[in-house]
Simulated assay, not measured.
Amino acid sequence: MLLLTKHDIENIFSMKNAIDSDKTAFKLFSQNKSVVPLRTNIDIPKLSGQSLFMPAYVEDIDSIGIKIVSVFPKNVENGMPSVPAKMILMDGKTGDVCCIMDGTYLTQLRTGAGSGAATDVLAVKDAKKGALIGTGGQAECQLEAMLTVRNLDSVKIFDMNLERAQEFCTKMSEKFAKFGTEISVAKTTQEAIENADIITTVTTSKMPVIDGKFVKKGAHINAVGSYTPVMQEIDEYTIKNANKVFVDSKDAVLSESGDLIIPINKGIIDKSRIDGEIGEVLLGMIEGRKNDNEITIYKTVGIAVMDVVTAYDIYNCALKMHMGTVIEL
């Protein structure tokens, strides 16, 4: 069995690699070539946290996996990851565990890459301005994905904690200097999203963090943070009036995300508001962006097929490059 740390993964697997893996995962999912039960979510009320258990099987690559991931927002206050996790990868031919890897970084990587994949096919080709709302554990990979698929001149960053937003900008400006993108703080969400071609929200908010009246025509929105029925990042105006809404999984989003559940329960929209899955767009089964004036939304709650396909690709890279630590149990 192989053990892979975050450091191991970073050394062998790029954001571009991860985006390619997620594109494969989305297509397999929309072709019904994977078994992905809805995740089990256990609430931890006293710490405002949740623990989630996410299994999947992908026959095409003979792989099974389960990610055990927790979301504890208060961890940030103690300098700990807000989304600690472990990924267990199993050989689909034998059922035995072949690899255990850092699931925290895997989650950050594949979630950012999912937005990257959606942005690649839905955002306007000449996008120049980005906006990122939230600077928690998921934010860095979300930013990297945005920069990987589009040549952006600037990205505005907003967080409720202004000091944390400034620290994030300073760190990211140094880390991603190769992209040549100006990364700066916005004092309000309105300042961040006005004139932005790409908007990514990655918070645990229970109230909308953007006002759709300030979203420009032609913008693409990655709605990442809302993964429970009571969380809502995207305001109802935006959900109702966007030209296209795509999701990673219809069943998962309609079961888990307040971004869609809340306006549906209010009678503002119905399930037909979802135009399709991003995998269907990638497969050419449905049309994505029609023109440069459309506002498009990609809503994700994360599906385990993303973890299994990405973990499988990381594992095979590690074997080829002789990375990681081999152990016997």
Rank of each mutant, 00 (worst) to 15 (best):
N243P: 00
V155T: 05
K178P: 01
L260D: 12
K93A: 13
S115R: 02
A311K: 05
D96I: 01
T188S: 14
V155C: 07
K244D: 00
G218M: 13
F158K: 14
D251N: 15
I314P: 10
P208D: 14
R273M: 08
K250P: 06
A25N: 05
G225Q: 01
T24W: 02
K125R: 12
I88D: 01
K86E: 08
N41V: 11
I133A: 10
D126M: 07
D102H: 10
E194T: 15
K128A: 10
C317N: 15
V215C: 00
L282D: 10
F168H: 14
D20N: 15
T310K: 11
L143V: 02
A196Q: 04
V202K: 00
P45W: 12
H220N: 03
N222L: 03
F168N: 13
A242H: 04
T310L: 09
K23R: 10
I278W: 04
I327M: 11
A177Y: 03
T148Y: 02
F29R: 02
I268L: 07
V245L: 15
L89N: 07
L89A: 08
E10P: 08
S51H: 09
T188L: 08
E277D: 04
M146Y: 01
I198Q: 04
V149T: 04
M231K: 10
I297N: 01
S257G: 04
G267H: 01
A318Y: 03
M306W: 05
N316H: 13
A219C: 13
V245N: 01
S21C: 05
V69D: 07
K128F: 00
D22C: 15
T135D: 05
K23I: 11
M90G: 02
C169I: 12
D307C: 07
G267N: 01
E287F: 02
N265H: 03
M172V: 09
D211W: 06
N161A: 12
Y227C: 09
I42A: 12
D60E: 15
M207I: 14
D126C: 04
G279S: 11
I12A: 10
E144M: 14
N75H: 06
V309K: 12
K178V: 01
A304Y: 10
G137P: 14
I269Q: 04
H322W: 06
G95M: 03
A223W: 09
D275P: 06
K171H: 06
K290V: 15
D211H: 11
L147Q: 01
D43W: 00
G134C: 13
Y315W: 06
Q232A: 11
A131I: 05
A85P: 12
N11Y: 05
E287A: 08
I264Y: 07
I42G: 05
G49H: 00
G103K: 09
A242G: 03
E194K: 15
Y237H: 13
R150F: 02
M231Q: 11
D197R: 05
D126A: 09
K217R: 14
D43M: 00
C141N: 11
Y227H: 13
N78T: 11
L254F: 13
L38Q: 09
N161F: 11
T94N: 06
T238D: 12
P55I: 05
F246I: 03
T238A: 12
F72I: 11
N32R: 15
I42L: 15
K206S: 13
M207F: 02
C169F: 10
T40M: 00
